[in-house]
Design a protein around this nucleic acid. Structure first.
Length: 554
RNA sequence: GACGUAAUAACUCAGUGGUAGAGUAUUGGUCUCAUAAUCCAAAAGUCGGGGGUUCAAAUCCCCCUUACGUCACCA
């Protein structure tokens, strides 16, 4: 049976718009990976969706005096549209507020409940009387008993870095009302990590075998070594996946959000008349998660423990690609503090620079450590790399063909030994780039791609065909080789720069079917093939753009 | 405080045991097919500090310094 791939990008939380962090952290790497597998004609689905529950959205809705549904509808719509505009090639973008998702999550919860999988426990929590709401630790602020910091959370003081017990906090205040919350008892269900220790150890072994990033292995190791706290998976809220027979309780957002990949697939399968379980309950399937470092625990522990105890036929991740964070101007991106480049704003002011943004975010992808986005880099990448190296090369070759050869790929060629070697070298590029992509080295893959244009520029400068007579064998040879480089650039660009790819196809008068031949050593631009007149693809960024950058910042 | 990640040329980074690499910026030059682009060359680093293992360390181990991140009922 043919292998099936499930590629997932972490679900963005709908308390704000899509920003560059989402793209560089999960959507772009997942997109490149998916585009590559598609070019090999693999069977795959690339899925994601909106994560629309949780207390943060409820708090936002209270503060803005709106219905939570209004908030999620507003952001879901824009995020979905923005992903498409950025050419993220998702097969399905679903949402966790959908009934299908609710039913599926409850089905799993109920079965586990009946199996006595959860621990039932009474805890005391802060409670806001005015809003009838139990408050998460982050929503109670007070004075730190150690350093007297006035805005310490009830579980953690940011200033002195000390973990607090709820009762330690002095002068606790609800962030909703600024009033003192009361302490009240409640009963919730917990994931019994202590009881699941053997399963966790098994997962660690399994992930180690699969060569998961050491970030994940170390995380689980530490988790096992530390004093494991069981984690509640129900909440006293009226916003979320409601649990039947338990009034005023919903599932903890991550208990169900992690199942969103499955429900997104079910939704996709229904619309396309496919069988979703051939992906999720099939030993020949491969699940690859793309996530940020903030949700390692949910993908490496929550999901496997929940799903395997529900039905052992479900598959576990074959790889979890964890990225660090992208900062903006040296500071952490924050949706709530409005510190980010939001994609809808970017597209409003710079709609022609989608590929430049993709390039910038891929080159500076936070693979090993946090990286930093600046407009200065954005400009350099656009002007020096995309225009100087890439755009310039294709324009040089196309103009040469336009001017000297009637816009046709030369036909009378007779390659010498050295020139044949050059062609062979070019044929190796798809494989080289593919290998890097499969190893999740997206930045190196893109650099390799750009190298092809660099190689072309050097080749042209060394050989200087414009100094030769038209239609001599040597002239034809050089233009033929340069054209093949052009063809490879065109097809390989599809992984990284989809808009550029589409424009190149038009310029070169090619169709997309050829892309499936990229595994073979093939000349995409055969002799006598006619191309179109040269047209500039990238726009230059000059000083006047800084006004636009500032508009996008604010 | 605990844990994690990092520290390499002015800048951004690549390089996991075998004579220090790339791009940008700088300086000089070449070319005109090209979006003042390209291409060639020069200059630029005792690879954070100290110790250890080894014939051999940027790379492995230990200690220190500095920066960033995480620390669980936020997502």
């Amino acid at each position: 049976m043919k292998k099936r791939f499930i590629i997932t990008a972490a679900l963005p939380y709908t308390n704000g718009n899509l920003h560059i962090g989402h793209l560089s952290g999960v959507f772009l790497p997942a997109d490149i990976y998916s585009r590559y597998l598609r070019s090999l004609k693999k069977k795959l689905i690339f899925i994601s969706g909106s994560d629309e529950h949780g207390v943060s959205i409820l708090i936002k809705s209270i503060k803005e005096n709106k219905n939570p549904k209004f908030i999620i509808n507003k952001y879901h719509k824009v995020i979905k549209k923005n992903l498409k505009q950025m050419n993220i090639s998702l097969d399905n973008y679903f949402r966790t507020s959908n009934k299908l998702h609710h039913n599926f999550s409850i089905k799993i919860f109920n079965k586990l409940l009946n199996k006595n999988f959860f621990l039932k426990k009474e805890t005391y929590q802060y409670y806001d009387k005015d809003y009838n709401l139990f408050l998460a630790d982050r929503f109670v602020i007070g004075v730190c008993p150690y350093c007297k910091y006035k805005e310490a959370y009830s579980d953690f003081c940011e200033k002195c870095g000390i973990i607090l017990k709820q009762k330690d906090l002095k002068n606790p205040k609800s962030i909703l009302t600024n009033k003192k919350p009361i302490f009240k008892s409640t009963i919730n269900y917990f994931l019994n990590f202590k009881k699941l220790l053997n399963q966790i150890k098994f997962l660690k072994k399994k992930f180690k075998k699969l060569k998961f990033s050491s970030k994940i292995i170390k995380y689980i190791s530490n988790f096992i070594k530390s004093k494991i706290n069981n984690r509640s998976i129900t909440r006293d809220l009226n916003w979320g996946v409601k649990i039947p027979h338990y009034k005023k309780k919903v599932l903890y957002v991550w208990f169900e959000a992690i199942l969103g990949y499955i429900t997104s697939t079910i939704n996709w399968a229904k619309r396309n008349k496919k069988k979703w379980y051939l992906y999720w309950k099939n030993k020949n399937s491969k699940l690859i998660n793309f996530i940020g470092k903030d949700n390692i625990i949910f993908h490496s522990l929550f999901y496997p423990l929940i799903i395997k105890n529900y039905d052992k036929n479900y598959i576990l991740p074959n790889y979890i690609n964890v990225n660090e964070f992208l900062n903006f101007n040296g500071k952490k991106i924050s949706t709530s503090k409005n510190r980010a480049i939001f994609i809808n704003k970017f597209l409003k002011y710079l709609p022609d620079f989608v590929d430049t943004l993709r390039y910038t975010l891929i080159i500076d992808m936070p693979i090993n450590k946090d990286t930093n986005f600046t407009w200065e880099k954005f400009k350099v990448y656009n002007n020096n790399y995309l225009i100087g190296i890439l755009g310039n090369y294709i324009n040089r070759v196309i103009v040469l063909l336009n001017k000297y050869n009637n816009s046709k790929i030369p036909s009378k060629i007779l390659l010498n030994h050295n020139q044949k070697k050059i062609l062979k070298y070019i044929y190796k590029y798809p494989k080289k780039i593919g290998k890097l992509i499969l190893k999740f080295k997206f930045k190196l893959a893109l650099l390799k791609f750009l190298n092809l244009a660099r190689f072309g520029n050097k080749f042209l400068s060394k050989t200087s065909p414009w100094l030769m007579g038209k239609n001599t064998i040597e002239f034809n040879n050089i233009l033929f080789i340069s054209s093949q480089i052009l063809g490879y650039i065109c097809f390989l660009s599809n992984y990284f720069l989809p808009n550029f790819y589409k424009k190149m196809l038009k310029l070169l008068n090619l169709n997309t079917n050829n892309i499936y031949n990229i595994k073979n050593k093939i000349n995409f631009l055969p002799c006598n093939h006619k191309i179109n007149k040269s047209k500039l693809i990238f726009k230059k960024i000059n000083k006047s753009f800084y006004k636009i950058f500032n508009k996008i910042n604010n």
